[in-house]
Design a binder for these strands. Structure first.
Length: 413
RNA sequence: GUGGCCGUAGCUCAGUUGGUUAGAGCGCCAGGUUGUGAUCCUGGAUGUCGGGGGUUCGAGUCCCCUCGGUCACCCCA
């Protein structure tokens, strides 16, 4: 029978075993960034819509993908389409000491037509540092993300890096690019012919042949960086080389949000189709905090899409779901009271354990034990207790009721 | 937001030019065999054929609408 209610369009119910990958991925990420001094922040899933207008009036996110609504108090609210702006907002609100190094895992919402790898609610692992423009921070942040992909076993993730300049050099370049594009205007694709004045740098990112050939000789931002940005980018590249992070310089890299300055980067999972191979990205946003009403404060961060990462893992056969979540499964053919007591005893002793319920037949309990992914079964029957290996056939070991926990610990160690 | 394809049991799917009580495999449940463990055997339950409307003597099969999925564009994670 067709269910009356289903997950809203573009959303995902994540159940085991896939949910175990989410859990394991988040755990690895948390361990990695915690070990580098980043603290967890837990922020609202929605904000005043104006917080997100800082992403750029001309961006698609703001123009057409905002998941917004009016609440009962008449407030104009938006489910967050971006993780960085709320962190900047929280920074302005609480003024923590700097450098403020934080990480998060959060759902993000964009109202758009869903397809594989693109959802109205997806999830991201993120990280932000506010209060320093030290290029070594750029290196640290990028290395943390690159390290995660490598840790998962992904081999075909390419890091692309560029510098978008800052308030000193970008406006001048922008004018120059705009003038250049005006001279080639008729050659551009339909989509971008009218957006030259709006957002000339987007044209460089267009994948249509018309725009690609028309912009082949266009001035490049990397050739027009001011001395400070040039030096900053040079130190970032040197740092990446020093710590052994491989990257490509991509002068045409343009991100979807307007707040980025200087160092900007993306991770492309080449094992996936190009349509959704963006597995993560980020960069500097040295003007964002100020635009939200705070003091001039540099910042850098990234967002890594959990669903995209897992899709990339599927494509590369990497990072399979963990087999199970308990080490021991208790089988009891005498009614279940012994299973209750033994599993409780094991858990108190720090051993993860599950069991069967409803006094199921032995065979069914063993099937459940095998499916649980546990390494060991404790089989309790009228004529005694046995420990049996589940991962492979082996000789059962008979133990006394009182010695179960000790014997289990010994076998698991 | 625009366009193409798709929507049959929990899952993967088959259902011939529209024709009687809609099928298979897997899974699930019960039982049996294997000297109590994924094998094997027997039996069993489950579908308003995504939803609504229409054409027809008759629709899972045709038409319209709608919801959802998927792919492309767009954009991104």
């Amino acid at each position: 029978m067709a269910p009356k209610f289903t997950a809203p369009k573009g959303t995902l119910d994540v159940l085991a075993p896939q949910s175990r990958r989410y859990g394991a991925l988040i755990a690895r990420y948390a361990a990695r960034v915690s070990a580098a001094g980043y603290e967890l922040v837990v922020l609202p899933m929605f904000e005043d819509v104006d917080v997100f207008l800082r992403l750029g009036e001309s961006t698609d996110v703001v123009r057409k993908e905002m998941y917004d609504f009016e609440d009962k108090g008449g407030r104009h609210i938006a489910l967050k389409p971006d993780g960085t702006a709320p962190v900047a907002r929280a920074f302005v609100e609480h003024r923590p000491t700097t450098p403020w190094k934080v990480w998060y895992v959060t759902p993000k919402f964009r109202y758009e037509r869903p397809q594989k790898g693109r959802y109205r609610q997806h999830h991201e692992l993120g990280l932000e540092v506010l209060g320093s423009d030290d290029p070594d921070l750029d290196v640290e942040v990028i290395a943390l993300a690159a390290g995660l992909y490598a840790d998962l076993g992904l081999r075909r993730v390419v890091l692309k890096v560029t510098s978008l300049g800052d308030g000193a050099c970008r406006p001048g370049y922008r004018d120059q690019l705009q003038q250049y594009l005006d001279t080639r205007r008729v050659e551009l694709c339909d989509e971008h012919r009218d957006r030259v004045a709006d957002n000339p740098m987007r044209v460089l990112d267009c994948k249509r042949a018309a725009c690609i050939s028309a912009t082949a000789d266009a001035p490049r931002l990397l050739d027009h960086l001011c001395a400070e940005c040039e030096a900053h980018f040079g130190r970032v590249r040197a740092g990446l080389d020093a710590v052994g992070v491989r990257y490509e310089i991509d002068p045409k890299l343009v991100r979807g949000l307007d707040y980025y300055t200087r160092t900007t980067f993306e991770f492309a999972a080449e094992a996936m189709d190009a349509a959704q191979n963006g597995a993560g990205g980020g960069g500097r946003y040295d003007g964002l905090v100020e635009s939200l009403g705070g003091p001039a404060t540099p910042g850098i961060g990234f967002g890594l899409g959990i669903e995209r990462i897992l899709l990339a893992c599927d494509a590369e056969g990497a990072f399979p779901a963990p087999e199970g979540i308990v080490d021991v499964f208790v089988v009891d053919t005498m009614g279940g009271e012994a299973a209750r007591d033994v599993s409780d005893e094991l858990r108190r002793a720090g051993v993860s354990a599950d069991r069967a319920f409803d006094n199921r037949p032995f065979k069914k309990q063993m099937t459940a034990a095998l499916r649980s992914g546990a390494r060991l079964a404790v089989v309790i029957e009228p004529d005694g207790v046995q420990l049996r290996t589940l991962t492979e056939k082996g000789e059962p070991e008979t133990v006394s009721r009182d010695a179960i926990t000790d014997a289990v610990r010994k076998r698991l160690s």
